[in-house]
Design a binder for these strands. Sequence first.
RNA 1: GGCGCUAUCGUCUAAUGGUUAGGACACAGCCUUCUCAAGGCUGGAAUCGGGGUCCGAUCCCCCGUAGCGUCACCA
Length: 454
Amino acid sequence: MTDEKESFNKGIAVRFAPSPTGPFHIGSVRTALYNFLFARKNGGKFLLRIEDTDKERSTKEFEENIFDSLKWLGLDWDDKDHLLRQSERTAVYTQKIHELIEKGAAYISKESEGKNKEVIRFKNPGGKIKFQDLIRGEVEMDVSDLEDFIIARNINEPVYHLTVVVDDMESEITHIIRGEDHISNTPRHILILEALGGSRPIYAHLPLVLAPDRSKLSKRKHGESVSLNFYKNAGYLPEAIINFLAMVGWNPGTDQEIFTINELIKDFDIKKVQKKGGIFNIEKLDWLNREHILKQSKNLQIERLKGEILKTKFKDYEKVGDPEFLDKFLVIILDRIHRWGEVSEILEAGEFDHLFIDKPELNKEIIHWKKSTPEKARENLEKVVQIFNEEKTLEIIWTKIEKLAEERGKGDVLWPLRYALSGREKSPDPFTLIKIKGVKASISSILSAIEKLS
RNA sequence: GGCGCUAUCGUCUAAUGGUUAGGACACAGCCUUCUCAAGGCUGGAAUCGGGGUCCGAUCCCCCGUAGCGUCACCA
């Protein structure tokens, strides 16, 4: 244990200490991230601790969700064999409570109201507590109005304020990096810490991640969009979520916007963390996510694309298994999505039915270009079919169609062609369509358009 | 309400005691173009208010104001 510790620089240790009382919160992701970045940047330890003293609300499912989420995000924690789970440490806390009582720093208090008739209260010495905050500078609070606050429901059931302090002491946490909503808890923690004879860590209180209405993100008020799962399911990449959250409240002082986790580690500086809370701006996340999708390897992109198609009505189409088809489809889909979940949404909306179904439904009225006539459209389509029949390779076919379009008017040739192929007023260009559909399906689509015009 | 934190474009932010206050997202226009998407270019858009200090304050100080957080036998 000692040897292991010495391999870490300056003995720096931070912790991320979530409660498994709900789905992993997006604000927690950022707290975890900043702790992680700080530890990795400074060669310290990044510890995980499960704060499940609230037996009523803590569940194993939510705990699993914490582990899974951190792994998915790539925020790997240290000392996995020594993970502290507060529900397993009551003996330690009980001993500390006894210690505090013996020292006269705490006492058993008879209650006239509340759940328990007897609780353990901390004997508040009053006065002012001053502490240094890495982000906010000096913070001073009068602790008198806290009165004798409760540190345990009974001798065997400690409350958060006590467990935090005991565990941070045990893990030798040097820097406590947590949300701003804990500022007002800090004097309490310092009081307990001093009574226990611990040495004071350095505090850093992060600004909050806010909802668009500038209030703290909460499940009650803002629904499922506060949980990490929501973003995972919507097809956001962990890289993008990390990149985005890192930039809410911090920036490197340069114009760089796109970061990998390693670049973040390299540039991270807790002193540059903002004091002001930042709004979770999903439009910027969307943009960043697209940038990160574009950075993925082609194999990964194809694999993901296929997975998304398998979620849709086209899951049984044989094209889904055709690597060549996927390859071509990928090109047009990458221009159109910000997150992978959009693939199935677009597909279900029918926007790309024509890529799976050879002959799309056509509306006679719009086969011809707006500025032209049905007669011209038919003539041109017939000429296109002729080209298809005369030539063999796609390149030559396309060169001839282009030439035809030059001669007879681009809109007059290309609009009917594109509409015949797609059955949609808005679609990728006809050449792309032909490549994806194949020559055979393309011809039959065009023929059915001609038929419709006859 | 007490206590605390905060204050630069709509949003995330940069900057300095002296700048045309910079970038990104979003938005608008233009270009490209048969349509859409993508892409390129251009544009509009900010220092909360009032006092100081100073030759000069967005920046430093004070006072307001506003927003947020917190005031549990939750964490």
